[in-house]
């Protein structure tokens, strides 16, 4: 589904990604872990098409298409979803109106008729239940005045509504208490299918207790320095990142 080859990217001349290669197949869950400043969020943003980053080298293929050549909206329309680490507050645009617009823009791209009001509402109700999100957040301005937890839950709600093929969760666990974490994870798990894939970017192992990854990758100084299975995450939980940093400094990995 996604194949990243030797990806290099920088922001304002500062090199952040130093040759990342990663392959994600349908049905898989990949976790990308790493210490602060290792480039995790940059990778997520580059995949979603944020223009602040300059891709200097390498490529990313999404279902065989050149992903890096696509506009952010076309990536979304092709099924990529980024759950933001810091969801943006947009005063004056209601959550519902936003979702209706997004869904219908995606449908238009696919040559489908817009969703009628009844079908849209039905879908909203169903997905709201899935992430246990309050009805009152629907008519409010997008993320405006939402608590940290409400914002993250809203991201997963958007994901449920848009039904992406490749979901990238950027530190969705940060700032969540354990109950909220469980709800968010349940939502993600419920949306999992053999046809879609998930990339979970996280600093802590905690989320991975609930969203169990097939593969874990450790990002450090802009490259993947170690890959493994979920046991690697547990090892990191146990030992921290220092041993990885040490191995990198010593040239072992």
């Amino acid at each position: 589904m996604l194949e990243i080859k030797n990806l290099h990217a920088s922001v304002e001349d500062k090199k952040i990604l130093n040759g990342i290669s990663l392959k994600v197949n349908a049905g898989e869950v990949h976790a990308i872990m790493g210490p602060n400043g290792s480039g995790k969020s940059t990778l997520a943003s580059v995949l979603a098409g944020k223009e602040d980053f300059e891709v200097e080298e390498g490529e990313a293929l999404y279902n065989g298409q050149d992903l890096l050549d696509m506009s952010p909206e076309d990536r979304a329309r092709e099924g990529i979803f980024l759950a933001f680490q810091y969801p943006v507050e947009i005063p004056g645009v209601s959550n519902t109106n936003f979702l209706k617009t997004a869904i219908n823009e995606i449908r238009k791209y696919k040559g489908e008729e817009p969703l009628d009001a009844v079908a849209f509402l039905k879908k909203m109700k169903e997905k709201m239940k899935l992430v246990n999100i309050d009805q009152s957040l629907m008519s409010r301005s997008l993320n405006e005045g939402f608590s940290g937890g409400e914002k993250k839950r809203n991201e997963i709600f958007h994901m449920a509504m848009l039904e992406p093929k490749l979901a990238i969760l950027d530190e969705t666990d940060s700032g969540l208490d354990i109950d909220a974490l469980r709800i968010v994870a349940n939502g993600v798990n419920a949306l999992k299918s053999p046809d879609n894939a998930t990339i979970v970017v996280t600093h802590y192992q905690r989320l991975l207790d609930y969203i169990v990854p097939d593969f874990v990758h450790v990002l450090y100084k802009g490259r993947i320095v170690k890959s493994g299975t979920k046991e690697l995450a547990l090892e990191l939980e146990d030992k921290g990142y220092d041993w990885i940093k040490k191995e990198v400094e010593e040239g072992v990995i």
């Binding site: 979603a48 098409g49 944020k50 223009e51 602040d52 506009s71 952010p72 909206e73 990536r75 979304a76 329309r77 979803f81 980024l82 933001f84 969801p87 943006v88 947009i90 005063p91 004056g92 645009v93 936003f98 617009t101 997004a102 869904i103 823009e105 995606i106 791209y109 301005s141 958007h158 848009l162």
Partner: peptide
């Protein structure tokens, strides 16, 4: 740019996203 990217990353075309933000 931040809100614009947020809207676009959910599938809303650039012109429409701009119109939405200006309307708001």
């Amino acid at each position: 740019e931040e809100p614009l990217f947020y809207l676009r990353s959910r599938g809303i075309g650039e012109d429409k996203a701009r119109a939405l933000l200006m309307n708001a």
